[in-house]
C-alpha cells in the first residue's frame, strides 16, 4: 500500500483528518526548507507537499509565484531537488507529494521523471495544469512506477467529470476551494461547502477528499473539515510565515503554526 493510502487509513482509525503542509523547495533557501519540514513533522503534519519551482506557474497566486522565482534564482534545479528529497527522507517517513507543472515532467519524459523522483522518495504528484483529457501517457508512466496521482477538481467541475477524474486519482482527490489561484481570498463562500458535500457524495468513500487554496488559519481549517473534507492543504500561509521569520526561528514558528492547524483536524 502506498504511504499516502496507509496514512489516510491510519488517520481514519484515529478519527482524525489529514493536515497536508506545503513548502516550496529552496525558498527562501534549501536550509530553510529543511527547517520548515522539521517544523511540519514536530507540529504533527500528516503529509508534506513539496513544490518544485516552474518559471510560469499559472495556477499560483503571488505568494507561491514569488517563492518559486526566488528558489529558481537561487539555483534550484532537478538535481538539487532530488538531493533535498533524499535529505528529507532521512528525517521523516511521512508521505511526500511533489507539486509542479506538467512541462517539468514532459521535458524529461514522464516515465524517466517519475522513476527518478520515486526513487528519491516522492510518493505522489500534483500537476495543476495536467488535465485528465491529456493524461493518458502520464497516467501510464505513474502506474508503472507505483506513483500516486492526485488530480484537482474545482467547484464548477460537473459530477460526471468528478467521477471520471476520481477514477484516475490515487491517494486522494484535491478540491480547489474557490475560483482563484493559490493563497487567494480569505472568506469561504457557501459554494465551497456545497462543493465539498456534493463531491463527497459522488466519491462515496472510495477516495479521500483534500481541500486547498486559500486555507490559511485554524478557523478556516475547522470550517473545511466540518464541511466534510478528509484533508486540508495549507501552502501560501506557511510561505508567508517563513518569509517573515529569521532562519533560526523557522523550525519552531512553523512547528507552532502546524500544530495549531493540526488541532483543527482532530474531530473527536
Amino acid at each position: 500500500m502506498s504511504r499516502i493510502k496507509s496514512k489516510f487509513q491510519d488517520l481514519r482509525s484515529k478519527h482524525q483528518k489529514a493536515l497536508i503542509a506545503y513548502v516550496m523547495a529552496g525558498f527562501p533557501s534549501e536550509r530553510d526548507t529543511i527547517s520548515a519540514i522539521r517544523g511540519f513533522v514536530k507540529g504533527g503534519a500528516d503529509i508534506i507537499e513539496l513544490g518544485m519551482p516552474f518559471s510560469d506557474p499559472l495556477a499560483d497566486g503571488p505568494v507561491i509565484q514569488h517563492a518559486g522565482f526566488q528558489a529558481l534564482q537561487k539555483g534550484m534545479n532537478l538535481d538539487r531537488f532530488l538531493l533535498l528529497v533524499k535529505k528529507i527522507r532521512m528525517e521523516t517517513d511521512l508521505p511526500l507529494i511533489l507539486m509542479t507543472y506538467t512541462n517539468i515532467l514532459y521535458r524529461q519524459g514522464y516515465d524517466k521523471f517519475i522513476y527518478t523522483v520515486k526513487k528519491a522518495g516522492i510518493d505522489g504528484l500534483i500537476l495543476p495544469d495536467m488535465s485528465i483529457d491529456e493524461s493518458k501517457d502520464f497516467l501510464q508512466a505513474a502506474k508503472k512506477n507505483n506513483m500516486d496521482v492526485i488530480f484537482l477538481i474545482s467547484p464548477n467541475t460537473t459530477p460526471d467529470r468528478i467521477k471520471k477524474i476520481s477514477d484516475s486519482s490515487s491517494g486522494f482527490l484535491y478540491l480547489v476551494s474557490m475560483f482563484g489561484t493559490t493563497g487567494g481570498q480569505q472568506q469561504f463562500q457557501n459554494y465551497t461547502t456545497y462543493a465539498i458535500k456534493s463531491t463527497k457524495k459522488i466519491l462515496g468513500g472510495k477516495i479521500p477528499l483534500g481541500v486547498g487554496f486559500g486555507v490559511s488559519n485554524p478557523d478556516q481549517a475547522k470550517f473545511i473539515i466540518k464541511s466534510g473534507a478528509d484533508a486540508i492543504i495549507v501552502g501560501s500561509a506557511f510561505l508567508r510565515l517563513m518569509e517573515n521569520t529569521p532562519s533560526e526561528k523557522i523550525e519552531s514558528k512553523i512547528g507552532h503554526f502546524t500544530s495549531s492547524l493540526k488541532k483543527a483536524t482532530i474531530t473527536e
Binding site: F54, N103, I104, R107
Partner: peptide
C-alpha cells in the same frame, strides 16, 4: 523543443529542465 505552456503542447524555448 517540444513542451507544454499556456495550455498547449507546442515548440518552446526552454532549458534542459523545462524552465521557459
Amino acid at each position: 523543443s517540444k513542451g507544454i505552456l499556456h495550455g498547449m503542447l507546442t515548440y518552446l524555448l526552454q532549458d534542459d529542465e523545462g524552465q521557459i
